[in-house]
Design a protein around this nucleic acid. Structure first.
Lengths: 369, 369
DNA sequence: GCGCGACAAGAAAACGATATCAAGACTCTT
DNA sequence: AAGAGTCTTGATATCGTTTTCTTGTCGCGC
């Protein structure tokens, strides 16, 4: 199975003469170099070495230089795990996430990781479905690793779980989910208001039979969007033509679309889908299975502004969740709570904005009834 | 900015009477419960507690039960960091990845994380561009955290960097990149052969002016695919009509498409794009900017079989990288190297297969010249 | 009843760092 | 030149485990 012939090795052709950096030293597998080793060679105490690596500690320039020089030559770097044992901070943030198939979450993870990295923290990833039992295991693992803080994205932690975190003194921030006013600190976009705006937008553009393929009403995000959307429709004098829960799942959403469009009540002229990820599937069904035109026959609107929404094949009108702001706020709050350990919890809903593209009829362009 | 009115709180309405689990105990922020605490309450030595939690250690059923009971009631769990200090294993795998915008990598991360989690390991994420200086910082951080192993996805580690890892005794596996026979262990799909098959496929389907929007020829993956593709064309008696490096970037690829299709040499009737991620951008340009039909006017073929390739709006013919096998092999090899610390390096190229969809003309369907 | 092996359990030494503290080496001031 | 203050420094305790070593206990065969 190993390929030998695939590639002319003109790059990376390693020079000879590297004298086996892998060679074991004695019996132990690999001699780790510790602060003691550095101390000995530099002729100072081990404490001095430690101080040399602690910014702001009291070391004379002379010993600092001596230590650094020896450290460099030996390749010494302080062991973060040993440090965290005594400082009580691991500089590890646990991030629990249900799945990365929805690009919104992979973007979020990417940015969260970047931002934290810039502040000297790193992200330990925990995949977890929303099954209670699995979440329980994950929270255990999270605590085992002594993470300094937890970001839970797209998972609904039961209150007993979030209580365990706060009992352990570990700040927890919910990303793109909330658990109500008494729940943990949570950052979302303004799902309610965003969906309400979408309702108004669709109504004013002339849609009259508007269906909703909902997110997942067990999740706050799905619930809020649906509530906002319903209220927006009512405000515009309309009511929901049809509604199926898509459970954030492409396949379920596609099936929902098929069902809604073949219902005896007549087909809708507009669909609001709970997130972009599902909306793409719905658009594909509408166009390529049902043979309808978007937006001429049906307006489709999503939520998130996932990267693909801007791709011309979809060109999806959607509500942009301000992901960068959401991430920055999440990280800032989390770090503030870690560093001050004050623990009031607050819920934030950051406003986003409607991104008008061409998957939905546009108000005022003369296509009202 | 905090919203108070967005959502009717009918769920999660927390009951009264929870007696402040957050309350501090004394002066210190939060009393961590240690094995000593458990030992004291269970009336055994601290060693006994440790043994109770070490599978296969010598403990009598009686003390085991006693310890476990106290541990449960106190919510004690061993501190992984302290353990790793003495065992020398952190059960942390560092994964360095350039970006998650390409779904192929977010899928890989998701699966890698899942598989490792099932084996009691966890993934610490490091984002790194391919800039040498940044990679250097990342490798430092990696070593600082005492990771047990490293998976580098989509980044080209210089040899000096991979040498540093092996000098530190940390197994490194390259995912979807390789550095040649003398380089570190690497798992890729059979990029060379896959691209060669694509060349044959396109040639036999009647394409005569075939262009290539390459991956990035500085990366092994891009290099191998281009080499295989060229060889395949030659075999079929054709040669490359045009070629631009897309650097794995959607925008650059889109620009490349515009350029190739307006070149004086005449427009191609087929384009092989170095990965799906860029191919989607290229298809959008071809269809929505140039007004050409796919596949009637131009065949488009990608590489990866990213999730979106199966979406009807693209329906992209592509070469499926067997991501699950790649991940499983990567993890198995990495863990084997961690547990046995034998360190021969090998390169694997796992065969994938062509996934024929409708973005490219199909051989034998009567549309030859 | 004695000795032997097997097993259980505690004491104490790691692991690799930081934190605390007291002593030593400076710089000033007077 | 002495005393007060500041800056550096090393010794030592500490973090929460696992590991090693030793001692103790028990059961068993002879």
């Amino acid at each position: 199975m190993t390929r030998e012939d695939s590639k002319p090795l003109d790059r990376n052709s390693r020079v000879e003469g590297s004298d086996e950096p892998n060679a074991h030293s004695g019996s132990g597998p690999f001699a780790r170099v510790t602060s003691h080793d550095v101390a000995r060679l530099a002729g100072v105490s081990q404490s001095a070495v430690s101080r040399a690596f602690s910014p702001g500690a009291s070391v004379s320039p002379k010993t600092l230089e001596k230590v650094m020089q020896v450290a460099d030559s030996l390749g010494y770097r302080p062991n973060v795990l040993a440090r965290s044992l005594i400082t009580g901070r691991s500089r590890i943030i646990g991030m629990v996430v249900a799945y990365l198939g929805n690009s919104f979450y992979s973007m979020a993870l990417e940015r969260i990781s970047h931002v934290l990295q810039a502040k000297g923290y790193h992200v330990l990833v925990f995949m977890a479905s929303n099954a209670a039992e699995e979440l329980d295991r994950v929270v255990n693992a999270l605590l085992d690793y002594q993470v300094d803080g937890i970001i839970a994205a797209s998972v609904s932690m039961s209150n007993s779980l979030s209580d365990r975190c706060s009992a352990a003194g570990i700040p927890l921030v919910l990303f793109n989910r909330h658990q109500g006013k008494r729940g943990p600190t949570a950052i979302t976009s303004d799902n309610y208001d965003g969906a309400k705006r979408i309702a108004r937008f669709m109504a004013y553009s002339g849609c009259r039979r508007i269906a909703h393929i909902a997110g997942w009403s067990e999740s706050s995000t799905g619930f809020d969007r649906e509530a906002g959307f319903r209220d927006g429709l009512v405000e515009a004098g309309l009511e929901l033509h049809d509604r199926i829960d898509g459970r954030w799942n492409r396949n379920i959403a596609a099936a929902a679309a098929r069902s809604i469009f073949s219902a005896p009540a007549g087909r809708p002229d507009g669909v609001f889908v709970g997130n972009d990820h599902m909306a793409f599937a719905v658009m594909d069904v509408i166009r390529y299975e049902l043979g309808l035109r978007v937006p001429e026959d049906v307006s489709v609107v999503g939520f998130d502004d996932a990267p693909q929404a801007g791709w011309k094949a979809y060109d999806l009108t959607t509500y942009r969740q301000p992901i960068d702001e959401m991430v920055d706020l999440t990280v800032n709050i989390l770090l503030a709570r870690i560093e001050n350990s004050h623990s009031e919890t607050t819920q934030f809903a950051i406003p986003g904005h409607l991104v008008v593209r061409r998957s939905a009829k546009i108000p005022g362009s003369g296509n009202h009834d």
